[in-house]
């Protein structure tokens, strides 16, 4: 069979909703796209622990502290599900992690923003995790089996993240004037970066939509973003807070909320490494990796010693 025939068969398989599994033939570009997307997604979970880790020691109560620890632990777990899905495509774990630490690989820009107040823990849960969930629910049906299965697992756990975030904000918005102001301030700072999580507008995309054709992705950036805006515009009313967008308005014709223009220069600036925390995040990851080196070495040495002992006993 010619390469084109393989590609045709592959597309037929995708079109008939048959999942692709690790050992199946797949076009190189499909594999490459997935490796990039899954590893970036994994890195996002791992780096995503940092802004919240910042508040574990300062959570206002033991209950909140326990919840936050559980959430951060989930994120480590989600990173690991995704790293192992990525590995099924023939990359090594070490290589993937080195790409993050060297700055070669990307992660979601949202984690390059600082967490200034406790209310940020609420806003992250509600808005950032809320935006992530919309993407992830869609990805549960992605065409690559291991990625889809990791996503199903993640989605099951993620809804607790969003609910605990909303719960934090709900508590603050019933509090003192200072607490209310803190809540509104966090929403103001996280709203636009959350909208940016969905990526550029569909109309500004120059390349053909291969990811949609391969069913890696099933909804466009704008579709997901609109869904998110519609959702949050209603939810924010329960908090008696507002979203920082004067153009936000219900449109009876489209049955959706209209909203203002995103500042794309800020978006690209953060992607390119000039966000408020890009450097700090990477340094924290690198330090953790380097500080952990002796643990990895010791565990490997111990495992080796045990194996050689077993072998000498057997002999």
């Amino acid at each position: 069979m010619q390469l084109q025939d393989f590609e045709k068969l592959f597309q037929q398989k995708i079109d008939t909703e048959i999942k692709v599994e690790p050992k199946d033939w797949m076009p190189d570009a499909y594999r490459k796209t997935l490796v990039r997307q899954i590893s970036q997604h994994a890195h996002s979970e791992i780096v995503g622990m940092l802004p919240e880790g910042n508040w574990i020691s300062r959570a206002p109560s033991l209950k909140r502290k326990a919840i936050l620890i559980a959430k951060v632990q989930d994120e480590a777990g989600h990173g690991l599900y995704l790293y192992s899905a990525c590995e099924t495509l023939g990359t090594s774990r070490e290589e993937t992690i080195n790409d993050l630490n060297s700055g070669k690989a990307k992660y979601s820009s949202i984690f390059n923003y600082p967490t200034l107040t406790w209310a940020d823990m609420g806003a992250i849960g509600w808005l950032v995790d809320g935006a992530a969930i919309l993407n992830q629910v869609m990805l549960c049906r992605t065409s690559y089996g291991p990625y889809a299965r990791a996503m199903v697992r993640i989605c099951k756990e993620e809804s607790f993240h969003q609910r605990q975030g909303f719960d934090i904000l709900l508590t603050l918005c019933k509090g003192t004037d200072a607490q209310k102001a803190m809540c509104q301030d966090a929403i103001n700072r996280w709203w636009w970066p959350s909208l940016m999580m969905f990526g550029p507008k569909d109309s500004e995309s120059t390349n053909t939509d291969q990811s949609m054709k391969w069913k890696i992705k099933r909804k466009t950036n704008d579709e997901l973003r609109q869904q998110f805006v519609d959702m949050c515009a209603e939810q924010v009313k329960i908090l008696n807070m507002t979203l920082p967008d004067e153009h936000l308005k219900w449109n009876a014709q489209t049955q959706h909320y209209d909203f203002g223009e995103i500042d794309w220069s800020e978006f690209w600036n953060v992607v390119k490494g000039n966000g408020p925390c890009n450097k700090e995040r990477l340094e924290a990851r690198r330090k953790a990796h380097e500080d952990g080196a002796w643990v990895r070495e010791a565990a490997a040495a111990y495992a080796e010693k045990k194996t050689s002992k077993q072998q000498s006993q057997a002999a």
Partner: peptide, 13 residues
């Protein structure tokens, strides 16, 4: 086209 978890490959700083 920038998808969630699909950022272009150039160096992030």
């Amino acid at each position: 086209k920038y998808y969630y978890g699909d950022i272009p490959d150039d160096n992030s700083g």
